[in-house]
Design a protein around this nucleic acid. Structure first.
Length: 217
DNA sequence: ATCCCGAGGG
DNA sequence: CCCTCTGGAT
């Protein structure tokens, strides 16, 4: 298992590769960001950014989306996949925001996860990016990178990955670390064909060294 | 553990 | 063709 010190070293090297890492979902308000993050489940941010201009042109606020016809919302977000559940969730979430928060969005993770379509990952992302609440959202990229680098064991759950990362990374770096690891996973340590050749982290990555040996054959 | 679910990449 | 994408609810 990679120690806390080595984990920070790995993070430092990733930050050199992606010094300005931040969320890539287009939005103009915290409400729109919440909706975009909900829709980004099992979808690329590129595909989400493709539907949000149309969606938010018709329904820019929680008050608007709360009254939107389900069929119309489904039609507008169809291309992102899982669209039936997502359409229901973002309308219902908007209705709850209107009823409980006057159309604004709550600032705590505890309150955010009560909204339909909002799990711990989405809540962490929104609270971290919009309100600077210290959190590490573990998505598919963060999980894959953490396990490949042996920051945590292969078998652990998403919750445990989050716990290990919070222990090994200083609190003030949590929010930024999330974005850095995401970009490293999205563009470099990819799921299918990771760019192990010449990777700055190769010397601390057993998985990467194995991959290169495999390539030799 | 299973379902949802279209688009893009290799 | 098969795999993957900033998961969540049941």
């Amino acid at each position: 298992m990679l120690s806390g010190k080595k984990t920070v070293e790995a993070l430092d090297r990733m930050e050199l590769m992606y010094p300005d890492a931040k969320g890539e979902l287009d939005h103009e308000t915290p409400f729109q960001y919440l909706i975009a993050v909900i829709m980004s489940a099992q979808a690329t941010d590129v595909s989400v950014n493709k539907v949000t201009p149309t969606l938010f042109a018709s329904y820019p606020t929680a008050h608007d989306l709360a009254k939107a016809p389900l069929e119309d919302v489904m039609e507008k977000i169809k291309t992102i996949g899982l669209y039936k559940n997502k359409a229901k969730n973002i309308i219902k979430t908007s209705q709850m925001l209107v009823e409980q928060y006057d159309g604004e969005i709550p600032q705590t993770i505890k309150e955010l996860v009560k909204l339909p379509g909002v799990g711990i990952k989405t809540a962490n992302v929104v609270a971290g990016d919009m309100f600077n609440v210290p959190a590490i959202a573990v998505d598919t990229h963060v999980e894959r990178v953490s396990k490949r680098l042996r920051i945590c064991k292969q078998s652990v759950s998403v919750t445990e990955v989050e716990e290990v990362l919070m222990k090994k990374i200083p609190r003030e770096r949590w929010v930024q670390a999330h974005h850095t690891i995401i970009l490293f996973g999205r563009y470099h340590c990819t799921a299918r064909a990771p760019k192990c050749e010449g990777c700055p982290l190769l010397d601390m990555c057993i998985e990467g060294q194995r991959n290169l040996i495999k390539k030799e054959k």
